[in-house]
Design a binder for these strands. Structure first.
Lengths: 186, 186
DNA sequence: AGGATTATGGACGATGTAGTCAAGAACACC
DNA sequence: GGTGTTCTTGACTACATCGTCCATAATCCT
């Protein structure tokens, strides 16, 4: 139900989506929608919140585990994202799309996306620290800074994918980023 | 004139901007707008095209010059962007905003933004090659790959800036990226 | 089962929006 | 100065959209 609304917002954006379209997509009457959520804005906030939580959950799940596979997980997370960006060609990520469209005028969206990014960065930081313990990354490096960089790369890949850059290029960039990470002094 | 239209699209997005709003912003009658451009879509394409060209021109200008200052220029370009993203808080870049909103449904926008990114990457590649000649970056590294990575970082900083991440964080990430670039073997 | 309460859904009103058009202004050219 | 041509304009049409409302269906509680 909420997923249908989310997909509608996802494909046509906030301003480009009418409540009639959502009513049709969800199969609900318009009165029900207004009764249940209050209005378009509130409905979107609800959908957006759920999606942000899902995004955070996915990152935490994909990036946690034993130290031995920490680097593997990191690579899989970023490379998987590169492939996903290229596959659902130009559909992109709802967080990015909503942030681009609404952040300027909607403090709720702005704050929520900021929190989402911070949480993804936390998950990345934890995984990088695991990499450091396992000797895959220089323990002298600042894990949080590296996590910030990888989060930035993650968002950048998203942006490039939306422009239609092909998969192999996106994966190549990701691999370059992984290669650039500081190795421990042998 | 076109700038007023651009600013209107920039702040309220494509779907969120009415032709009446543009007419008011530009001071032109609606009939004139339709007469001169054909319609909302075409007007936007025109505005978007101009802006993309400006973006490419800016990158080329900021990134070209003598080999000796190539690395300096690279740092200034990226750090300047980080600061700009934080300052015009959440206003962001029109290319990113339009790409996020329209790329899925408008092949013209999609193609134009792809070309824009490719040209910025070309400018970055040229500057990185200059860095290599000057001994600031490992000549064995693939300049194009590094340029792709830095373009990605550039776009990622944009995305994070839109979420409201503060300037010092954005600059820190940018500096981390610059630090991670492969140095020539001494 | 039966009444009370709540959820539902589509018709409705008011407003917004894309695009048209005919009347008038500005201009170029002789 | 006069005439033909192009530009400009804002009222206008047809339709989309937000949010409301109420008759009806479903659900709950005893």
């Amino acid at each position: 139900m909420l997923n249908a609304a989310r997909d509608q917002f996802w494909t046509t954006g906030y301003a480009g989506t009418s409540m009639d379209a959502i009513a049709e997509a969800t199969g609900l009457g318009k009165g029900s929608l207004y009764g249940a959520f209050g209005g378009k804005r509130e409905l979107f906030h609800r959908v957006f919140d759920d999606h942000c939580n899902a995004t955070i959950g996915l990152a935490k799940r994909q990036l946690s585990g034993a130290d031995e596979q920490a680097f593997e997980r990191l690579a899989a997370y970023l490379l998987g994202h590169a492939t996903a960006c290229a596959e659902r060609r130009q559909h992109g990520c709802l967080v990015a799309k909503a942030t681009a469209e609404l952040t300027e005028h909607d403090e709720v969206v702005s704050a929520r996306s900021r929190v989402t990014f911070e949480n993804v960065q936390l998950a990345l930081t934890a995984d990088i620290e695991a990499c450091q313990r396992n000797g895959d990354i220089d323990p002298a490096a600042d894990a949080q800074q590296l996590a910030g960089l990888l989060l930035t790369v993650h968002r950048g890949i998203e942006a490039l994918g939306k422009a239609g850059i092909d998969e192999s290029t996106l994966r190549g960039i990701t691999e370059t980023a992984l290669t650039c990470l500081p190795r421990p002094p042998r």
